[in-house]
Design a protein around this nucleic acid. Structure first.
Lengths: 212, 212
DNA sequence: CCGTTTCCATACACAATTGAATGTAAAATA
DNA sequence: TATTTTACATTCAATTGTGTATGGAAACGG
């Protein structure tokens, strides 16, 4: 076969990753061979072994195309709206995150693969990857909920630790429930009332009258 | 090899399933061969193919050893304590469920395998299995939360639908976070304050005075 | 006590993947 | 323009796992 332009080569690399996504999603990671991926992309295994070391390397590259830390969402919110409370910033960041998952099919597919379509690997541990993502999100939540407590935003009796557990568990549970079959419901439409209700219940009432 | 007693044969069947659990947990389902399972149990593949049709059949049998519907927990609570409100029954059933997972290592391992150590299969779809379990739990929660609403136990503005989403997502999220690495924390110790806090926030205040 | 069935071990044939080796024509480079 | 890389395709060797077929000895039923 003839040599390709740098741009063409980059394009086939992307095509291979696209094909890997499709095949991984449809048949699972373990049960798709590199040949299936190559043919799906209109290539042969030669192309795969040129661009990637092996299947694990390919998997890693596929994940790197959609990396999106939760902290960025909060930063984004806070950069956009300065006068908002920390708890409100969390709420908005959650909604933003839900919206993004809803609208980014690639991110959705890749996360679905990471969670439901793969298991162990030669040198790759998907559970550890999920762990990292979850911890990243959790730490960010905790930091901002600490501030919320300092600002006396949380209802009495709600520690920032429990609040973190609650928010993180709710978001993770919602996400898992959704990613299992995204066609069943819209994560945004179900998530918005969830997040609103939860943050509302966590927020200390500013109502000075005794009546509810 | 010589023929075994009925009891002996049943014992080797259990030993094979035990071995399958260990190997599946350690190396993932796809990457463990039937030979590895057999040798772990001190047998050969002949024993495996005698007791099971193939790996998928073995997987199914492994799951059937630990089936435990959520509804049973609620029933158990309600049978034990008649004078308790529906919301309180839910709370107690959740705690009971957490406790059971904490104390039943086999159930823990099998669920960990189902969620994190396997993907597709010849004729088995682990995601559909998770779906079934989750739906079962969800339906049960919903039924009892409907009753809670009729009894006017829920705070104003909290529909039984949102309450169901909230509880189910929280429990699922907590469970997923824990099952990913059960050695990181005790699901019971983290879960108890979570469930208490959440049900407390969901419960309508019976405080007749205006002050909080 | 004898035939039959059971429970498993052993052996075999087959298909599927993998990684590496080799080939090659065009792009890049000098 | 001559030479060297690059970007793949093709081929090969080796491994691995699967399903099945066969064998054998002891347990079971009559």
């Amino acid at each position: 076969m003839a040599r390709k332009t740098k741009a063409e080569a980059a394009a086939t690399r992307e095509a291979l990753l696209d094909a890997a996504e499709e095949m991984f999603m449809e048949h699972g990671v373990a049960r798709t061979s590199l040949e299936q991926i190559a043919r799906q992309a209109g290539m042969t295994r030669g192309a795969v072994y040129w661009h990637f070391k092996n299947k694990g390397d390919m998997f890693r590259a596929m994940l790197e195309r959609v990396h999106m830390p939760f902290q960025d969402l909060v930063d984004e919110i806070e950069a956009l709206e300065h006068d908002v409370s920390s708890l409100e910033a969390i709420r908005l960041a959650c909604l933003k995150g839900l919206e993004r998952f809803e609208q980014n099919p690639r991110a959705r597919r890749v996360h679905a693969i990471l969670i439901h379509r793969c298991e162990f690997f030669s040198d790759i541990d998907p559970i550890a990857m999920q762990q990292e993502i979850a911890d990243e999100c959790r730490d960010s939540l905790y930091q901002h909920l600490l501030i919320s407590e300092e600002q006396q935003m949380l209802v009495q009796g709600l520690s920032p630790d429990v609040a973190t557990d609650l928010l993180q568990a709710t978001l993770a549970g919602l996400f898992h429930e959704w990613i299992r079959d995204p066609s069943r419901f819209s994560i945004y439409e179900r998530g918005v009332p969830l997040v609103n209700q939860l943050t509302s219940m966590m927020r200390r009432s500013t109502d000075t009258s005794g009546a509810n």
